[in-house]
Amino acid sequence: MIKVSGLRKLYGDTVALDGVDLHVREGEIHGVLGRSGAGKSTLLRCVNLLERPTEGTVTVAGQELTALPGRELNLARRRIGMIHQHFALLSSRTVAGNVAFPLEVMGVPRAERRRRVAELLDLVGLGGRGGDHPHQLSGGQKQRVGIARALAGDPAVLLSDEATSALDPATTRSILDLLKRLNAELGLTILLITHEMNVVKSVCDSVAIMAAGRVEESGRIADLIRTPGSRLTKEIFPLPDPAPPGSVTLTFTGDPQRPLVSEVARKFDVEISILGGSVEELPGGSAGRLRVAVSGETGPALAYLRERGLLVEVAS
């Protein structure tokens, strides 16, 4: 649905993006995770060409945006919704007026506009608040208005620039739930950037990790977790790094209830002591990571675990 290839963006001597490739599949929630200054916002703003990339191409819903002249680009942008960290609502308009704005831009007639606005406000849980002004709303409600506004053009894609970073944890939760629901009910493809692992853990199907203008790793979260040496895994399941020599780190996805450790201890002549670990609920199911020290019949025991689909990493 979104395809970005060889994207470079320079601001004078600053290299904000240094050859970024990104592929967001239809209907997925794709996160871009990275520290401040990594180039996430620049990447997102290149996707709807708010910034013109120095090099590279951007294709959204089969249309190569980087090849479009200004007027057609404006038309294409109407099918790409965007929400912002500080909401970017018009203080001169009511809630309904804000949601109506993109419809006015599209030339939708007044009566139709009114109907759509009411529908959109209902969708985001703000039915009846249309006459309020943004300053009368809480942060979470403002972001709901932002979301309703972004959906006005019936977009195929929603871009989110740190949409929950200005919100408290409970409100963040409710906005993320709303995004998840829109993703499921409308089939909306969402590209969201964030510096919070929590956001990625709770809603993303896929993720790209960015640092210094580059994508360090990307893919489905379930796949990345099984990839040896994955940065994502290390950050989701914090364990002392580097691992103590000789220790074994086990990463597993799926049912955490399976008594694999006791199973191994019974079947093989090994002693296992647990050094650390945790289990996380992720959108694709639960996953966990366990660091253990194993002594005795180590080889066959680890081979058995590998056979069961665990990622087994032995620190040397």
Partner: peptide, 8 residues
């Protein structure tokens, strides 16, 4: 920018 992103 929000308005630009809407294609205004």
């Amino acid at each position: 920018q929000a308005a630009q992103a809407m294609g205004a």
